[in-house]
């Protein structure tokens, strides 16, 4: 395939990656990495470099809209970034010491289980009983409101400490595996902290750019970010992310949950494959 044709197809694929990434809060990498390695036959390291770029592009491109419309919980996002950036830096330095395959394999199994749970009760708008609000969340002024069909809807935040610890784990995974930290972020905010679904995905989307930037130096230093691969990715992902961010306010939560579960099932299989065959 010529460079021109490759660029064209990669651009189209990146639009899809950015679109899905912005709607799920996962970033574009989840779609992009298997597409690059399996469909286009690109080396995994270059694919992860392109994925890192796409995560930052999805995050910034979609967050510009989500923040302005008031979906993103800024205080919560910033607070949890403390945990994710620490985790990402720790994860990046652990890469040499932990067996990549084992980590990827275990993470894959966890994701498949989460996808199964998500598919089982995807019609549900929220958890049946999210538990009482956390007094710590009130002291940290983490509660907020988000735009609903009839004006802004107030919500409380639960289980701050477990949520914070899980974000640290999300950062470690991001530093170790390069992708997938968004999945842990969304699951932690949705299932543990009991946030409304759209607040969980848009706050995750807000944070993944910073988490990715915290781990970027390693990729730059080792030359994993190839400009000729990255440029159609950036442009396509940005377009897709802006389209996705347009769609999210009117989208049904059940549909978004279904999409999320489908995508993390794909990510789970991807990780399992990396665990089994390196």
């Amino acid at each position: 395939m010529s460079f021109l044709a490759f660029t064209f197809f990669l651009f189209l694929g990146s639009v899809l990656a950015g679109f899905v990434g912005a709607l799920t809060g996962l970033g574009g990498g989840v779609v992009l990495v298997p597409m690059l390695t399996l469909l286009f036959g690109v080396d995994l390291k270059l694919a992860l470099g392109a994925s890192l770029v796409s995560v930052i592009a999805t995050s910034s491109g979609a967050a510009a809209a989500y923040v302005r419309e008031g979906f993103t919980n800024l205080r919560l996002g910033m607070l949890l970034e403390v945990a994710t950036t620490l985790g990402a830096v720790a994860g990046a330095s652990l890469t040499a010491r932990l067996p990549h395959g084992v980590v990827a394999g275990i993470f894959g199994l966890v994701l498949l289980h989460s996808a199964y749970m998500g598919l089982r009760d995807w019609e549900r708008e929220a958890r049946a009983d999210p538990g009482p609000p956390d007094p710590l969340a009130v002291r940290l002024r983490l509660q907020g409101t988000y735009p609903g069909p009839r004006g802004r809807v107030p919500y409380a935040v639960r289980r701050v400490v477990p949520g914070f610890l899980l974000m640290g784990l999300a950062g470690v995974l991001s530093g170790l595996l390069g992708i997938g930290s968004g999945a842990v972020k969304v699951l932690a905010m949705d299932r543990i902290m009991g946030l409304p679904y759209k607040v969980s995905t848009t706050t995750s989307n807000f944070m993944i750019g910073v988490t990715a930037a915290a781990g970027a130096e390693v990729y730059l230093r080792h030359g994993y970010i190839h400009p000729d691969l990255a440029f159609p990715v950036v442009l396509g992902v940005l377009l897709g992310a802006v389209l996705g961010a347009r769609l999210l306010p009117g989208a049904k939560v059940s549909g978004l949950r279904l999409l999320f579960s489908g995508v993390i099932a794909l990510l789970g299989l991807e990780m399992l494959a990396q665990g089994l065959w390196g």
Binding site: S2, F3, P227, F231
Partner: peptide
């Protein structure tokens, strides 16, 4: 996006017909 677009068009202009394997 503007910088990447300008540079990307330049790259395509210079190497558009080259097989992608060689580029990467």
């Amino acid at each position: 996006a503007l910088l990447v677009l300008l540079g990307g068009v330049g790259e395509l202009w210079a190497h558009g017909a080259v097989p992608v394997g060689a580029i990467l």
